[in-house]
Design a protein around this nucleic acid. Sequence first.
DNA 1: GTATGCATGTAATACGTTACATGATTGT
DNA 2: ACAATCATGTAACGTATTACATGCATAC
Lengths: 201, 201
Amino acid sequence: MKYQARASSRRPSSLGYAILGLLAARPWTGYEIGRLFAETPIAIYSSSPGSIYPAIKGLRAAGLVERAPHPDNPDSSKRVFAITPRGRAALRDWLAAPVAREDVRRNMQDLMLRFAFMSGNLPEAAIIRFLKDLKRETEAHIEALEAHAEQMRAAAPLSGVLALQAGIDGYRKTARWAQRALDAFVAGARAPQKTPPEKTS
Amino acid sequence: MKYQARASSRRPSSLGYAILGLLAARPWTGYEIGRLFAETPIAIYSSSPGSIYPAIKGLRAAGLVERAPHPDNPDSSKRVFAITPRGRAALRDWLAAPVAREDVRRNMQDLMLRFAFMSGNLPEAAIIRFLKDLKRETEAHIEALEAHAEQMRAAAPLSGVLALQAGIDGYRKTARWAQRALDAFVAGARAPQKTPPEKTS
DNA sequence: GTATGCATGTAATACGTTACATGATTGT
DNA sequence: ACAATCATGTAACGTATTACATGCATAC
């Protein structure tokens, strides 16, 4: 009785959202996305067709992306995909979700991926809020890690203690980065800048 | 004809190796491991029984861990597990594997997990080699990222550029940390210190 | 005209997660 | 005696990965 209904699980995976974020800028083919993941150093996903194409298929089934005509040659056999209005809405919802402590702890990459796609898809105010939340949650996590480090410093072996230190250092860097990014955005917000509309669907 | 045989895939997952690393220090029950993942801020894995118990099962099937008597009460129904000699060998192989560029790019957490378990399981020389390799590979990756950042700086939106900067900052921090850890280990190596035997199995 | 790379997929597999289930201990 | 927590699992599901497969275009 205390069990709740199965999560409908229609939400895209991180890879799905990454593809959605790319398509928000311009149409792509699956192959292009794979090449981006293979050749640019930023991509954190596998470039194999076995991950890309099924992910696109899922997004299509959910109505978040659709086939688009080839920009140059309308008769090309290449399968170009574009984001739909519903896709844009789903992307925005994902981008605008609150910063969960659990994501800070285990999925920082997802948070950075979200941030990377925010420009042009979220109003500046929401981006600034995200950065403030990220900074706050990261600093809270640092405190928890340090309290834990204090306890374990005596008992744990050297490499264990150093590894934890590396984790703490990384979060400190993230917190400082968030502050600098905040500065950059606040400075940019003062200058006139095109802000995306709040609703597109 | 150019296809090679399917990877026998008997190797544990990251979670499996994490459990193996814990058991290398002392016997644990599955429940204790779950609590560690749930309550300490360091754990990057799910604490749910659905991940822990199947992972232990797999390690048992592979002969890497085995049931051990309860340290206090031999008749306890608690299922305490200990690492086997083959388990120690598998752990050592994993710890001693070269630092792959691909891991630096996509699985830094695995590398840090490996490092965390090195003390007591690898000779100092191997740990120092790992840190040197990690530093070198990380710095190489930073160069690739910076070259890419140079290209994209003009075209990409602000949040995308900043996110990439966050990635680069993180790797810089890692490289500097590796140097400091190296110093700590070299300093420790000068002092008399117990070095684990090269072979245990 | 055929080799090479472009381009798009499917099948089998492994794994982690969520939800579900249940027995054993311990405190009151 | 009963509740709460300790403790150990299984089943269904989704997804990423690897291996496999194949059609199309272009260069030579």
